[in-house]
């Protein structure tokens, strides 16, 4: 397997690589697989992306499934039409996904707009700051339709449905429906409209 680097403007027709670097503007027209993918420039992929490690410090738009062992987002990652699956996701930037995001562990300090986030441990602490990247999100809170995990910790999140075993709703959240089967704590500054489940207040 070979390494490939885009430093100016480059076009790939998919395939399998060891290391893929995009520092300029890269476009991929088919499915791509690599051990290590780092995007520091702009990358558009119309196929699926599979990687051991995928880091997005620039701007990436993927139009099919993303599958990685670890995904780090410090820039803006947009997933259109596909799902995002990873063992571990860390987001300091922005993730926009209209499909499901599934991860064993997801930690976000940036902004996530997604239809669904599911997994084992989900932590989203979105505090609006005025860094360039977060400003691109243009929202007061991370906005997620459904969050479902064994353990959930949220702040600065708007969600329609939150289902979990142990749930901590931190400050500045608006949750329509919450189901909890373990321990539950809700910060006084957050609004949770319907609560169900056999939970105990932490």
């Amino acid at each position: 397997m070979q390494d490939y680097s885009v430093e100016g403007i480059g076009k790939l027709s998919g395939g399998e690589y060891r290391n893929l670097r995009v520092e300029g503007v890269g476009e991929c027209t088919d499915d791509i697989k690599a051990e290590d993918i780092r995007v520091e420039g702009v990358f558009n992929c119309s196929g699926s992306l599979e990687a051991g490690y995928f880091s997005c410090e620039g701007v990436a738009e993927i139009r099919s499934d993303i599958r990685a062992k670890r995904l780090d987002v410090e820039g803006v990652l947009t997933s259109r039409g596909g799902k995002i699956e990873a063992d571990e996701i860390y987001c300091e930037g922005v993730i926009k996904a209209n499909g499901e995001i599934s991860a064993e562990v997801l930690r976000a300090e940036g902004c996530i707009n997604a239809s669904e986030i599911v997994g084992d441990r989900i932590t989203i602490n979105y505090h609006r700051t005025w860094t360039k990247i977060i400003r691109m999100c243009r929202r007061e809170r991370s906005n997620i339709r459904v969050i479902e995990a064994t353990s959930i910790e949220l702040s600065g999140v708007t969600a329609d449905t939150v289902n979990g075993k142990d749930v901590i709703i931190g400050p500045d959240c608006i949750i329509q429906n919450l189901d909890c089967s373990g321990t539950l704590s809700i910060d006084g500054s957050s609004q949770v409209y319907n609560i169900t489940g056999t939970y105990t207040r932490a």
């Binding site: 599934s102 599911v118 084992d120 479902e148 995990a149 064994t150 979990g164």
Partner: peptide, 11 residues
């Protein structure tokens, strides 16, 4: 089983 196990097995 937990949500985590269900979604791990799906992945």
């Amino acid at each position: 089983i937990s949500y985590g196990q269900l979604y791990r097995w799906k992945r």
